[in-house]
Design a protein around this nucleic acid. Structure first.
Lengths: 134, 134
DNA sequence: CCAAAGTGCTTGCATTTGCAAACGCAGGTG
DNA sequence: CACCTGCGTTTGCAAATGCAAGCACTTTGG
């Protein structure tokens, strides 16, 4: 059985097996053993093993530790776990700019304006693919 | 029992009482009772009460449900909980721009350039206005 | 040939989460 | 007065997290 979404009235449910597979994937890719990652993440190796196979539903703290051990952002892992919603790319940019306290109000507005301009500019072209033009 | 911030070699530790106070703050501001928020978040009201007073350390799932009930972003709550590291404002902006696939390479560079210009512009004036609740 | 060290996994167990069922207290309403 | 409805909280208790200890297997190598 695959990554089952329990899907009650609520939409925030942790995708247990999905996150496990993703972690194992990342660990394999990094050529680490279970024990190695466990040590780096400061989690016990049996527990990490169980998490990877979807037998356990790790807490937020454990998840962030594993993320650190894997050197990936906790947000990435949380999105995979279904804990954080996957935000659209533009949403990330606009909210991050909007909440950047190091900018003045004018600067924020300017940046957002430019960004919006770029967005609509690209909207005009059909954008058949997200190709990397040189 | 207090707001202990364990701070081992790892930096990711959950600030129990801090998150509780923040939740209660948000709930009061929204003029909701414990039971109302509990129902909206699909969490039991006694448990929510305990979380707010820092007696319990809610899991990631519960936290995201509460965030939904409060209509605030889960990320905000997670940052408050110390689960997600508070990224520096500029870091968020630059990385989000850099990874925005809806932009062309030129547009990305332009935005980052403008942003950097703003940053150094503000660097001149000293403004360490870091207001924390005191 | 068999110790030593590596891999991942299973098994018990202390600790914790999270909830249902209460409790004590206010404020209306009949 | 009793009766209800809502508030936040306390109290057990089932269920889950997360770990230490140990298992079975493979590889190294003296």
């Amino acid at each position: 059985m695959q990554a089952l979404w329990v899907h009650t009235a609520l939409m925030a449910r942790i995708d247990v097996s999905g996150i496990g597979g993703f972690i194992r994937e990342q660990r394999d890719q990094a050529q680490m053993s279970v024990r190695q990652l466990a040590k780096a993440a400061e989690v016990s190796n049996p527990y990490l093993s169980q998490v990877e196979r979807g037998l356990r539903k790790p807490s937020a703290e454990i998840l962030s530790r594993i993320a650190q051990g894997l050197r990936i952002s906790a947000e990435t892992l949380y999105v995979r776990a279904g804990i954080l919603a996957q935000r659209e790319g533009d949403e990330v940019v606009t909210t991050s700019i909007a909440s950047d306290s190091t900018l003045t109000e004018r600067q924020r507005a300017t940046l957002l304006q430019i960004y919006a301009a770029f967005q609509s500019e690209n909207q005009a072209q059909v954008t058949p693919r997200e190709d990397e033009e040189s």
